[in-house]
Design a protein around this nucleic acid. Sequence first.
DNA 1: GTTTTTCATTTGTCAGACAATTGAAAAACT
DNA 2: AGTTTTTCAATTGTCTGACAAATGAAAAAC
Lengths: 242, 242
Amino acid sequence: MKNASPSASDLSAKIADALRQEIISGVLLSDDRLPSEADLCEKFDVSRSTVREALKRLAAQNLIRTQRGHTGGAFVNKLTFDAAVTQHISTSTLLLSMNAVSFETACEARFTLERACAGLACARRERETFDLMKAEVDRQSDPALSDEAFCASDVAFHRAFVDAADNPVLSYQLAGAVEAMQPLMNMITFPARDRARIVALHIGMANALKARDADEVTALLHELETYTLELADTYRARRAGT
Amino acid sequence: MKNASPSASDLSAKIADALRQEIISGVLLSDDRLPSEADLCEKFDVSRSTVREALKRLAAQNLIRTQRGHTGGAFVNKLTFDAAVTQHISTSTLLLSMNAVSFETACEARFTLERACAGLACARRERETFDLMKAEVDRQSDPALSDEAFCASDVAFHRAFVDAADNPVLSYQLAGAVEAMQPLMNMITFPARDRARIVALHIGMANALKARDADEVTALLHELETYTLELADTYRARRAGT
DNA sequence: GTTTTTCATTTGTCAGACAATTGAAAAACT
DNA sequence: AGTTTTTCAATTGTCTGACAAATGAAAAAC
């Protein structure tokens, strides 16, 4: 049997794991300074290159940042919501693109999760989110908008809706589901008639949210899901026919 | 103004970004081989150490794997669902632990998302998932179980429920929400009486799922959320009183 | 035709050097 | 004493060159 550990003979991976564990377990706290590269060389009895490769691994995972100079070194990063969202979106997007997840599956997951926010969003929505959504709807109504920009605005609209639930953890989780769909949506073209339909549903959602009518929001999200699937089907049919 | 780009003078970060872009954009596909380190040295006009640090960054993000030997090199990794779930859980857990997210907020997000799965889970549940959930319930009924093992089984139970929805994207997104709560739950102690209540709710959920009664599942998840919050309150009160 | 040996390629690790950065300490100057 | 300037030591960033280890392909031996 092959060695299960991926770091059988990869010192930098082992060292990175050891340091990572100290960060995750809380031995090292945010903004704590790691030992200098020279110290780590001694501690792990390896060369500086190896230590540096380990540190670069942690830096790539956004766990540490480095600073040069007399008071420099490697410091534990505090993971911000923004950074986590960015990471989550990147992973989600890659996952969808690399695994040939069917449009239906991704769509179902995304709208299922989004509908879950309806209750909280209606209960807590503020004036500002409503304005934000309206602004995106206005942007979407511009016929000069490219398909890609239309999709981007669509994402912004839905994220504003999710944010209305006023739960950062929820927003973080949902961001991955909503944003990861964008590359898939970008493959579809949106003629004026289709856009009009989508914009109408968006307006309906915004108004239902304003009226705090969660059932209506849910229903409209269902319609939007159905319609999105229709569009994808149409696109596929057109592509097959050509 | 300070340079916005974090890689002002960090060649390995720049090179990693360049290669990452090629992977994400699809120029390099799964299992494609990257140029050898020597080739990359030439291409980017840097030393081997710098190239290696860049490659280690990509390896840390699970984007590539490396292999020694004649036919070795760095190869683009296919991101599996398992790897993505692991990453997602790790990020989510760190986010909750580093940002002092209130128990209430995390709990609300988790149960809101979990309830979203009720409909699909009831529609699609198979015999196996039901058995899996029952098995976890049995484990939870063992009084000898440690609090930590009880929590772990709780997580397994809920993940089985989510998996019943039979949508891998949904499972992936939910895993982060459910697993990230575990460290928070681990801080609570579960006396026998509390466990009995939880187990009862779990049994109810399993049965409702078997009966494909989504409303009942949703109601029980609501109860579970309320009860979990109560437990956390009790824990806090006891801690404050001591 | 099969087995063994050799070998070139590639990553993993080490050692030592110098540049760039940066804040603290020391020195010089009011 | 207080302020400014200079020096300096610590630290990361990069480069060079070397050798070890792994690995499959090619060559050689059988």
